[in-house]
Amino acid sequence: MLNGDNMAGAVLSGAALGASDFANAGLAGARLIGAEISRTRFDGANLMKADFSKATGWRTSFAGANLQGANFTLADMSRTNFAKALLTGASLSKSEFNRSDFSGADLSGADLSKSELARISFQNAKLSGANMSYSNLSRSDLGTADLKGVNLTGSYLFLTRLGAADLTTTTGLTQNQIEIACGTSQTKLPSGLTRPASWPCSGSETED
């Protein structure tokens, strides 16, 4: 097991770190480019501006971690736990996060463009100013997320759960995207868009 109270700036690129324990470690600015970190624990760790680009981390846990300005470009972090993590200004572009948990996470100003974000929980997440353009958000839950100023240009919203989401200040949203999503009478739409007759979706359509 690799661990340490202060490993700031550590170079771990390409390392095999699966099932390691870095909980509460100081890893600010660490380089883990292309590292294998599946099932590794980074709970509560300081990973500010850490570089996880091209890393693989299935079922990894970043719960409560500081990931401000971190880089996950081209990473595969499917089924990973980001609950209550701080991801402001982070780059999660062109990556896979399918079936991950971002509940309570702060993704304000983060770049999630062109990423696989299917079946994700964004419950109570802060996404203010985030770029989610051309991302796949099918069957994900945005119903209680803060979506102020989110860029949804070209994003795929097939059966995306909108619930009580306020979409009035989002950008790039079209009627075609709304037609395939799953909203309710509480969903607030941008000016010019109308609530589809198919809303709300049946429970069977929104199950994982």
Score class of each variant (00 low, 15 high):
Gly69Trp: 02
Leu127Tyr: 00
Val11Ser: 13
Ala23Ser: 15
Ser140Cys: 04
Phe97Gln: 01
Gly34Phe: 15
Asp43Phe: 02
Trp58Pro: 06
Glu207Ile: 07
Ser93Tyr: 08
Thr160Trp: 10
Asn3Arg: 15
Thr169Cys: 04
Cys182Val: 08
Gly57Ile: 08
Asp51Glu: 10
Ser191Pro: 00
Leu189Glu: 01
Thr206Pro: 01
Gly69Glu: 02
Ser140Trp: 03
Gly64Pro: 00
Gly26Glu: 04
Arg41Ser: 13
Asp5Thr: 13
Met77Tyr: 12
Thr171Val: 10
Leu157Asp: 07
Leu32Thr: 10
Asp166Thr: 00
Ser202Asp: 13
Gly163Ser: 03
Leu173Ile: 12
Gln123Ile: 06
Glu116Gly: 10
Leu12Tyr: 11
Asn3Cys: 14
Ala30Gly: 11
Ala55Asn: 11
Pro196Phe: 11
Thr194Val: 12
Gly29Met: 08
Asn124Gln: 06
Leu193Gly: 08
Gln68Val: 05
Ser103Asn: 02
Ile120Ala: 05
Leu152Thr: 03
Ala85Gly: 01
Gln186Glu: 10
Glu96Phe: 15
Asn124Phe: 14
Arg139Cys: 10
Thr40His: 14
Ala25Leu: 07
Ala16Pro: 10
Gly143Ala: 04
Asn81Ala: 07
Glu179Val: 11
Glu205Gln: 15
Ala8Asp: 13
Arg195Cys: 06
Ser138Gln: 12
Tyr156Pro: 03
Gly154Arg: 07
Asn46Met: 08
Glu179Trp: 10
Leu12Ala: 09
Ser95Cys: 11
Thr169Ile: 07
Gly57Val: 10
Leu112Arg: 02
Asn176Arg: 15
Ala50Cys: 09
Ala30Leu: 06
Ser121Asn: 08
Asn131Trp: 08
Phe122Pro: 00
Gly14Tyr: 14
